[in-house]
């Protein structure tokens, strides 16, 4: 359970780590847009180049970034295979068997799709690998400020997110502890039918639920005792500021987007 990389912070002192989280979120959005704007392999190559540059400057080992793909690998392969089977190309199919037709374009398209998703997942994982959950929520809160004008309780939402992130490791430890305790009493989570396995989770879920309620209650008391009273007149310690790093990021985004668009205009679209 602890080997899941996606969403885990990788501590390091790097250019990317020091960037403003808002900039990184915007960067990611722009990068995703670029991936979807790209309609051929040249465009994706530009995105890939951008990704490599980012990884190099983040000091996160490439292996860690790749590991994030492992979690969604099944999904990737599944979508790709589906596409191979169901893509209807022009011309004759390469392979024809009963109702299955496989076209050359289908295979191309599948490969293209896999590349796209790969880039997408790796790009997102760089954000979470280089940004602490706290500054991520801060960045989101700040970006979502627009919604505040629509009277949405942004501050509370951000606090809820921050607390949720803060308790993930605590609850993971607790789950492991309870699992071990029940295993020591002979509980078996690894064998049997699906129904049996689901049933075996009850001795874990109930204590976990009860302890979460207890923690929530205690945390509520502790927050009250530390003068929490909602958003009125609350100040913020961490103010986000725009620096030269963010300017470099903007430049990189501009480069990627221009590259992708140029290739889109001058070369034939694959899809």
């Amino acid at each position: 359970m602890k080997d899941v990389t996606f969403g885990q912070y990788y501590p390091a002192e790097s250019f990317v780590h020091k960037c403003d989280p808002r900039m990184k979120i915007i960067f990611l959005i722009a990068y995703i847009v670029a991936i979807f704007v790209a309609t051929n392999f040249y465009g994706l190559a530009v995105c890939f180049l951008g990704l490599v540059v980012t990884v190099v400057f983040s000091k996160v080992p490439f292996k860690s970034v790749l590991r994030s793909v492992k979690g969604v690998l099944f999904l990737l392969v599944f979508t790709a295979v589906l596409n191979v089977f169901f893509y209807k190309g022009s011309g004759d199919p390469l392979l024809h068997w009963k109702f299955i037709n496989i076209y050359k374009e289908g295979i191309y398209y599948s490969i293209f799709l896999i590349c796209r998703l790969f880039l997408l997942v790796m790009g997102s994982s760089i954000l979470t690998l280089t940004t602490t959950p706290v500054s991520l929520t801060d960045g989101l809160e700040s970006l979502l400020y627009v919604f505040k004008l629509m009277r949405l309780p942004i501050h509370e939402l951000a606090l809820i997110m921050s607390i949720a992130l803060r308790f993930i490791p605590t609850l993971m430890d607790e789950t492991e502890r309870i699992m071990n305790a029940q295993k020591a009493r002979g509980a078996d989570f690894e064998s049997g039918s699906l129904v049996k396995r689901a049933k075996a989770l009850i001795p874990i879920l109930i204590p976990l639920l009860i302890s979460s309620f207890r923690r929530a209650e205690e945390l509520g008391d502790a927050m009250d005792a530390r003068c929490y009273s909602g958003s009125k007149e609350r100040t913020k310690y961490k103010k986000l500021t725009f620096t030269w790093r963010d300017a470099v990021c903007l430049l990189l985004i501009a480069l990627i987007l221009t590259g992708v668009i140029l290739f889109k205009v001058f070369f034939a679209a694959l899809v």
Binding site: R177, A184, I202, P203, I206, I210, S211
Partner: peptide
């Protein structure tokens, strides 16, 4: 385990 009462279910 430590605080075994937390495993009751």
């Amino acid at each position: 385990f430590q605080y075994p009462e937390y495993q009751l279910f």
